[in-house]
Simulated scan of single mutants.
Amino acid sequence: MRHNIITTLATATLAATCTVLATVGTAHADPATRLHEGMQVVGQDVAPGTYSTPGPRAEDYGYCFITWLPYKGAKDSEATDMQSYSGASYVRLNAGDVITVEGCVWTLE
């Protein structure tokens, strides 16, 4: 009798664990609120909105850049716009923008 109770409890625990794992699935992260170096898609990788920076850091050699690209994977030579920043600045990013960031620390307002 005791063996049957232990087996029943173990089976119930295993079933509950499997249900929780199936419900959780793959985690989906919200878009970041800070721009990172390199290419990112606004609305997917980073949240749309107005970002600010206090300006370039010492390692940015006095400037930082944001380049707008026509699509993800585009080369810098295909850029549709490029802005350089040398002091405290703001930039508005819209969902769907594809950008490449070089330098500065940008945070969502």
Rank of each mutant, 00 (worst) to 15 (best):
E109W: 02
G38C: 13
M82D: 10
M1E: 15
C104I: 00
Y90I: 02
L21P: 02
E109Y: 03
S84G: 05
D30C: 07
G62S: 08
E109D: 07
D45R: 04
A74I: 05
D60I: 05
G73S: 08
T19L: 13
I99F: 07
G73L: 04
G73Q: 06
V91A: 02
D60E: 09
M1D: 13
T26C: 10
R92G: 01
R57N: 06
P70I: 08
A32V: 12
V98F: 05
Y71C: 04
G73M: 04
G87L: 02
A95V: 04
E59W: 08
P54K: 04
S52F: 11
S86D: 13
G103P: 00
C104N: 01
C18W: 08
V101I: 07
G38A: 11
M1T: 12
D45M: 06
Y51H: 09
C64W: 00
R57H: 03
E102K: 09
R2K: 11
T13F: 15
I66P: 00
T33E: 15
Y71S: 13
T13C: 15
S77M: 05
A29S: 14
L21T: 14
G96D: 09
N4M: 07
T53W: 01
Y51W: 12
V101L: 06
L35S: 03
I99M: 06
G25L: 11
N4G: 07
L9V: 15
V41S: 06
H28D: 15
A12Y: 12
D45C: 05
A27L: 15
A10P: 04
A32R: 09
P48K: 06
F65C: 01
E37T: 11
V41W: 02
A15G: 14
Y85N: 01
I99K: 03
H28N: 15
T17F: 13
Y85G: 00
K72T: 13
D81T: 07
D45F: 06
T107K: 08
N94S: 14
N94I: 05
D81Y: 11
A16V: 14
R2T: 09
T23P: 00
I66G: 00
G62H: 09
T50Q: 07
V98W: 04
T100C: 13
L69C: 06
N4L: 09
T53H: 03
G55V: 03
G43M: 08
P31S: 09
P56M: 05
T100V: 08
T13W: 13
E109I: 04
M1K: 11
C18S: 13
E109L: 06
I66E: 00
E102R: 10
L69R: 02
K72P: 12
T7K: 13
V91E: 01
T17V: 15
A74F: 04
K75G: 05
Q40L: 10
T13Y: 12
T19N: 05
I6A: 08
E102G: 05
I66D: 00
V98H: 03
V42Y: 00
A58P: 00
T33P: 05
L93A: 01
G38Q: 05
S52W: 09
Y85M: 04
L9F: 15
G49S: 06
N4K: 12
C18A: 15
A95I: 01
A32T: 13
A95S: 14
T100P: 00
I99S: 03
G38H: 09
T67L: 06
E59R: 10
Y71P: 01
E109F: 03
A32G: 14
P48W: 03
G55S: 08
T67M: 13
L14V: 14
C64L: 02
T17L: 14
L21N: 09
Y71D: 11
M39S: 07
F65A: 03
